[in-house]
Design a protein around this nucleic acid. Structure first.
Lengths: 112, 112
DNA sequence: CATCGTTATCTATAATTAAGAATAACGAAA
DNA sequence: TTTCGTTATTCTTAATTATAGATAACGATG
């Protein structure tokens, strides 16, 4: 046995006709938005720039009819960020997809 | 129907314990090496720098016991590049893996 | 109507990555 | 020992991407 072990790997995401829609990064961002209620805090927790986070969720909202996140500025706390019900469902759907994929990877054997 | 169609997507590769081993790019490179018999020509056809192509196949050869490509310089044609039998088997194995994955994607339905 | 902390946006800088240019090393063959 | 076209390697430059900073817009609240 001189060879290294070969393991199948990969990553999945969900596309819309206009391009990428939901991947690991966006899912984590959605979850942190749900937990913190702030796009700013979520971006800090993810250690990404606010601009990038803003771009990601705006792209998402643009590429699907019903927005997953509602952003508004001004008001009591300076602004609000809310994950919609649709957003919560998107998170669940992606997790299911990913679990199926992980099973697929485990079941696949690579040898040659 | 105001929403866009959601399609599952993804990409797969094969890892070794030391890191990435075989993905779409490397497979295409291997095939072009087999077809042209030259690392230089293969890199040109793939529109990547020779340096990058050289790094990719050297990494591959390093991360598995038996090399997939044999490179030698000097001699009649200035040098030789040969895809080994192991390399051919690696191509086939990856294609099988990828076909299974494409079936998996087609069978998966995304909705929420 | 001043304050507040956020979202929204633009610009400039930094960091990372890719590409390109130049050159050395090589060895069979004439 | 000269030639040849390739592989091998280093260094410089270009291109792309990410980050940081600054500032405007906003509107509920007191």
């Amino acid at each position: 046995m001189t060879e290294n072990k070969l393991t199948p790997n990969g990553r999945i995401w969900i596309d819309t006709e206009e391009g990428p829609f939901l991947g690991y990064g966006r899912i984590e961002l959605l979850e942190k938005i749900r937990d913190t209620g702030s796009l700013r805090k979520a971006s800090i927790e993810m250690k990404m720039s606010y601009q990038q986070a803003w771009n990601l969720i705006n792209q998402m909202n643009d590429r699907i009819g019903e927005p997953l996140v509602l952003l508004s500025r001004g008001g009591k706390g300076g602004g609000t960020t809310v994950l919609t019900e649709k957003g919560e469902k998107a998170i669940q759907a992606f997790h299911r997809f990913n679990e199926l994929f992980q099973v697929f990877l485990k079941e696949t054997n690579i040898e040659f």
